[in-house]
Design a binder for these strands. Structure first.
Lengths: 179, 179
DNA sequence: TTAAACTTTCAGAAAATACTGAAACTTCAG
DNA sequence: CTGAAGTTTCAGTATTTTCTGAAAGTTTAA
């Protein structure tokens, strides 16, 4: 591994925990992304200096995020791993999985709590806040989904045209009034 | 604390680590959000059964995220804490801080690496991937910023009208061709 | 079948992170 | 000043998370 590549892989490790997995899983994913050929578990464990068992667990974790793909080579019983899909698809999956883990449980708890009547003033206040949070999370996930459903090309083009969401939306208002 | 309120606070604790801070900090923040009156450090430590020192560290952490406000009551030397700003502002701050911690360092590393010429084919491939990631992160932060700059009311209204980003953007295209 | 080549699992060790509580520090009224 | 009322710090401890490596499991060629 050249210094440049190593710096990227190590950085993925440091960031890994922030993005939802642990250090070695982050490193593994970074390595798979910038390495052109698919890698076997042993190659990964050697490149990153981690145990074979750890690689196995890490791959399992990445699979649970649907971020790796398994390949087989003829005359070779080993499994080779590479990232699944384009960079954009990967980002989409990370978002989706994080939503499932970070937002959905909260939404469901909030919904449950909002079902029963508040028992007193204190609970009334609490429920009002929960309601606000609930609505906000729904709005955010909705719009995040909208962005995800667009191709990055389209978004980039628009960005270069200088289009902001607000601008675009103002136009829509105007357009609708005229129509 | 009623059962309902407690369930919310504990949930914030569990989610806390996913949202960027640790369990007790999450609990503290949840408690401050659903409690109408500002709370002193001792009240927090009693409500959550954690040490006074831990509360002090937690408040410091929340302040570094610009998520709490300090109040003083007349004839009382204690400090009282409450959440800073509306729910929307809080979400905005969490996003901003996370961007600073999770995305900006990566962008800067990628930019550095993209400056020098690749030394060989392997590095060429790696740089191409880094370029893709760099552009994607820029696009995402750009559009996230756009959404943040809008009021949640406006977003909600649009959402109820059934407007998706793509729809809105298609309209824009049509509009521009006609104009 | 068998055994070689590989993968997965998991108990225990190591490392990282969070928490406590007592001491140090700060502020302010008298 | 002094000391009471508060806050912060931090060394040591507890808890949680991650990692290792050996044992168990799986697959396949012969």
């Amino acid at each position: 591994m050249t210094a440049k590549i190593e710096s990227f892989v190590m950085h993925c490790g440091e960031m890994g925990s922030r993005w939802g997995f642990n250090r070695t899983v982050g490193q593994m994913y970074g390595l798979l992304i910038i390495h052109e050929e698919a890698l076997s578990a042993v190659q990964i464990s050697e490149a990153l200096n981690i145990s074979r068992g750890n690689v196995s667990m890490g791959i399992k974790e990445l699979q649970s995020w649907r971020l790796v793909q398994v390949h087989h080579k003829p005359k070779d019983r080993k499994e080779y791993y590479s990232p699944a899909g384009s960079i954009w698809e990967m980002a989409t999956r990370v978002f989706e999985e994080r939503r499932k883990r970070e937002v959905d449980p909260t939404l469901s708890l909030l919904r449950d709590n909002l079902l029963d009547e508040p028992g007193n003033q204190q609970e009334q206040y609490a429920q009002d806040r929960m309601h606000e949070i609930h609505d906000l999370l729904e709005t955010i996930t909705h719009w995040a989904g909208e962005l995800q459903s667009m191709s990055p090309d389209k978004l980039n083009t628009l960005m270069k045209l200088g289009a902001g969401v607000s601008k675009v939306i103002d136009m829509k208002d105007k357009f609708m009034k005229n129509g």
